[in-house]
Computed example of a mutant assay.
Amino acid sequence: MADDPLTTGELAALTRRTETEFAIIKSELTTLTLKVNSLDHKLDALASDVRTGHAAIIEMLATVIAQGKSPDAP
């Protein structure tokens, strides 16, 4: 069966298509990985900003309480 030219040609074509599709999938996975890493860095930066904001709020509340004022007062 391996000596059949039609079978050999079809097998070669199938192999090329499979290799091409594998290369496309690999490229898309690489792109996706880069995007996920970028998103991860952005989320880290956002979390840092949130922590900084929380720290500022806590500092302001501590100042208000130290002045003897209620944080709920207008």
Rank of each mutant, 00 (worst) to 15 (best):
A12G: 02
A12F: 01
A13W: 05
L14W: 03
L14S: 14
T15E: 11
T15M: 04
R16W: 01
R17L: 09
R17W: 01
E19S: 08
E19V: 08
E19N: 04
T20N: 09
T20G: 06
T20P: 01
E21D: 04
F22V: 12
F22P: 04
F22N: 09
I24S: 13
I24R: 11
I24P: 00
I24L: 10
I25V: 15
K26F: 02
S27Y: 05
S27I: 01
S27G: 09
E28L: 06
E28D: 10
E28H: 09
L29P: 03
T30F: 09
T30N: 10
T30K: 12
T30R: 08
T31Q: 08
L32D: 12
L32R: 10
L32F: 09
L32N: 07
L32T: 13
T33F: 08
T33D: 05
K35Y: 00
K35L: 08
N37F: 10
N37R: 12
N37S: 12
N37P: 00
S38M: 12
H41N: 13
H41D: 14
H41Y: 11
K42R: 13
L43F: 10
L43P: 01
D44A: 15
D44P: 02
D44Y: 02
A45I: 05
A45Y: 02
L46W: 03
L46H: 07
L46V: 13
A47Q: 09
S48G: 11
D49M: 08
R51Y: 03
R51M: 06
R51W: 03
T52H: 03
G53K: 14
G53T: 10
G53P: 04
H54I: 15
H54F: 05
A55H: 07
A55E: 04
A55F: 03
A56T: 08
A56W: 02
A56G: 00
I57W: 03
I57M: 11
E59A: 15
E59H: 10
E59K: 12
M60R: 15
M60T: 14
M60S: 13
A62Q: 06
T63N: 07
V64K: 00
V64M: 03
A66R: 11
Q67K: 13
G68S: 02
K69L: 14
K69D: 02
K69I: 11
K69V: 07
K69S: 07
S70N: 11
S70I: 02
P71Q: 01
P71W: 00
P71Y: 07
P71S: 05
D72N: 14
D72G: 00
